[in-house]
Amino acid sequence: MGGINALDVYKLLPKTNCKKCGMLCMQFAVELLKGTKQPEDCPPILEPKNAQNLEKLRAITEPLKQATETGIVLNEDACDGCGICVIACPVNPRFSLECLSGKAPDLPLPKGIIYALEDGKCKIKSIEECRRYTPPRTNCRVCEIYCPRYAIEIKT
């Protein structure tokens, strides 16, 4: 399921833009990934001809419903402190502008920073700010996708 984005979900929708769910199909795809809408909220997808796509959508959204925590597993032994997770994380720049330019934040770490490097290893500092944790939860996997050492795994 790694790397699924709104466009992948949109491709599985009927793409009629009928607004029976109250919005356009692309917006509905985004809401599905956030977990605020369910596939069944789209009336056209319940039609028999879309049954296969409905199954695929359920397979995508089901783990999101179950996820109560982020599911991030960090293997420190594999980490070599390249800092990609620190900079690529979409949340970190919100709390530290230095992250935008590829540099790590000064100490003391700003509150809310998720990833930081300590003695050459990545550490999770404040998981509660992760986009997978706070509502509306998104299926963000940026840190897992880009880690060159496969030290970050998301188990949901």
Binding site: D80, C82, A104, P105, L107, L117, E118, D119, G120
Partner: peptide, 12 residues
């Protein structure tokens, strides 16, 4: 005592 923001190579 501790090094922050450096990679493993730099920390060593």
């Amino acid at each position: 005592l501790a090094v922050h923001n450096a990679c493993l190579r730099g920390s060593k």
